[in-house]
């Protein structure tokens, strides 16, 4: 599914100490990647911070639906999806960015949602496995996964499918080996890899 990156900078009204701090950190650590880091650090700052509760407010679009949450700032995007929004299709496999079970698409790019704090996603468009099908009409990758038996226990499957959506969109993978290489962040312990490859190839062709 094509996701447009909505510019969240429109909503920025004022600078803040946190933003300045991040910029400074970027300058120190990022070196030549300075401009990129600065851009990434431009976080919206009109959000509410509830001192008393120790929570922050964050708004983002999940599967095209705007959601506003009041969260513990330590909440990962993964836990926000699973525990606050009950979108449990996104799985927690390792909580360390090592298995890919939590892969979702943020502004069209595949990421490990366990490595992203939910509070950093202000204004972002997030697509989870629940948002891929159009009503009863499955996403072509979902159909292909079914057809090729590209899963067993099913726990890594949403992450594999979201990752494959991202992979196809990136357009880098042309050969079997390239698909394998670029899907290697998504572990399937049941070993459905061969069938996942077949499913991705089928959708890539069409």
């Amino acid at each position: 599914m094509e996701k447009k990156s909505e510019s969240s900078t429109d909503e920025i009204k004022t600078g803040s100490t946190r933003r300045e701090f991040l910029e400074q950190v970027s300058v120190i650590t990022a070196g030549t990647a300075l401009s990129v880091s600065l851009k990434a650090a431009k976080l919206p700052t009109n959000r509410k911070f509830y001192q008393e509760e120790g929570t922050v407010e964050v708004s983002f679009f999940i599967n095209d639906k705007k959601m506003t949450l009041e969260l513990d700032p330590r909440t990962s995007l993964l836990d926000a999806l699973r525990e606050k929004l009950h979108l449990t299709g996104t799985k927690k496999g390792c909580d360390r960015g090592q298995c890919g079970a939590c892969t979702v698409l943020v502004d069209g790019k595949r990421i490990n949602s366990c490595l992203k704090l939910a509070g950093m996603c202000e204004g972002a468009h997030i697509t989870t496995i629940e948002g891929l099908a159009k009503g009863d009409q499955l996403h072509p990758l979902q159909t292909a996964f079914l057809k090729h038996d590209a899963f067993q226990c099913g726990y890594c499957t949403p992450g594999q499918i979201c990752s494959a959506v991202g992979l196809i969109k990136e357009g880098h993978a042309k050969t079997d080996d390239e698909i394998r290489e670029l899907m290697s962040g998504n572990i399937c312990r049941c070993g459905a890899y061969q069938n996942i490859l077949e499913a991705i190839k089928e959708v890539q062709k069409s």
């Binding site: 979108l87 449990t88 299709g89 996104t90 989870t128 496995i129 629940e130 891929l132 099908a133 499955l138 979902q142 996964f145 079914l146 057809k147 038996d149 899963f151 099913g154 499957t157 949403p158 499918i161």
Partner: peptide, 12 residues
């Protein structure tokens, strides 16, 4: 195809 396949590929 698996009976439970649709539930698994949709995250349900």
């Amino acid at each position: 195809d698996r009976k439970d396949g649709k539930l698994k590929v949709t995250g349900a």
